[in-house]
């Protein structure tokens, strides 16, 4: 399994590299090579590292460990076909991780990133509605049951396109330079990760790789069904490419607009789920 974890880290980082490259090409820049994010991770891990004098030391370090830990756990849950609710829980808890990263250092920029991550908490609700709608159809929260259901009834992507869109937006809001990524936007330096440099940042990169891999894997497993590994990897690349187009072409929204748009999406999803529930 350790080999799978390492593979997920590197492939996730590669996906992020492809993301950067595609955005650059759409904007007619040469852009970094696709393995840039992997190089980043390696580069950060041999930079001189210490803990800022004003930081809350244990939290500063512990949060990095925790971040890698929860996404490793999420990978296991996805691979063993565990409960979708746990994935959802871990995704929500990632909010705390962002918050912890931002607040533990004492940096004002990190603090802003953390506070922004709290006010944009509305972005998680569409995911829950997605989970609820899927459970209405498959009568189970376990990923294994959901893929089994799709063997019989065909991909859920065609049965319930709207939740798929909602989950797509949720993944979008976690991508770098997306219209919703207010927690790490440049007017607050790097947001929550401003003060995590060196090895800490390398740990964060590992988390990002794992997170990207797990989220895309979950999307494919929930909406397309079980696929051989090669097809999953190709599917991930395709999704990343489409996400890159959105990220490259949309401006970043202001925090207020981000929250408004996310609440709007949530409202639409809740109404949709309500209609489905009444009909079913």
């Amino acid at each position: 399994m350790i080999e799978y974890v390492l593979f997920a880290v590197f492939f996730g980082l590669l996906l992020l590299g492809i993301h950067r490259k595609t955005i650059a090409r759409i904007q007619r820049r040469p852009g970094p090579p696709v393995w840039q994010e992997i190089l980043h991770m390696l580069k950060f891990s041999f930079k001189s590292t210490w803990i800022p004098a004003t930081a809350s030391g244990t939290l500063f370090v512990g949060i990095v460990l925790l971040a890698i830990g929860i996404w490793t756990a999420a990978l296991f849950v996805v691979l063993t076909g565990g409960s979708l609710l746990i994935i959802f829980g871990i995704y929500m808890l990632h909010k705390i991780v962002e918050h912890g990263f931002g607040l533990s250092s004492g940096s004002p920029y990190g603090k802003f990133g953390g506070v922004r991550s709290v006010i944009s908490a509305a972005s998680e609700i569409p995911l829950f509605v997605t989970v609820a709608v899927i459970a209405l159809f498959t009568e189970s929260f376990s990923l294994a049951d959901i893929t089994a259901y799709q063997e019989v009834h065909g991909p859920l992507l065609f049965l319930v396109p709207l939740p798929a869109l909602a989950m797509y937006i949720v993944i979008l809001s976690k991508m770098p330079s997306s219209p919703f990524s207010i927690v790490e936007s440049k007017e607050i330096v790097s947001g929550y990760k401003t003060e995590h440099f060196g090895v800490w940042r390398a740990g964060l990169e590992v988390t990002n790789g794992l997170k990207t891999y797990v989220l895309l894997f979950t999307f494919l497993a929930v909406f397309i069904g079980s696929l051989p590994l090669w097809w999953i990897l190709i599917g991930m690349v395709l999704i990343i490419l489409s996400l890159s187009f959105v990220c490259a072409l949309c401006p970043m929204l202001s925090p207020f607009d981000t929250v408004t748009v996310q609440i709007l999406i949530t409202a639409i999803m809740v109404v949709y789920a309500g209609i489905l529930w009444v009909v079913a």
Partner: peptide, 9 residues
Amino acid sequence: FPVFTLSLG
């Protein structure tokens, strides 16, 4: 895994 990643660096 997290401990290993960080302490290695």
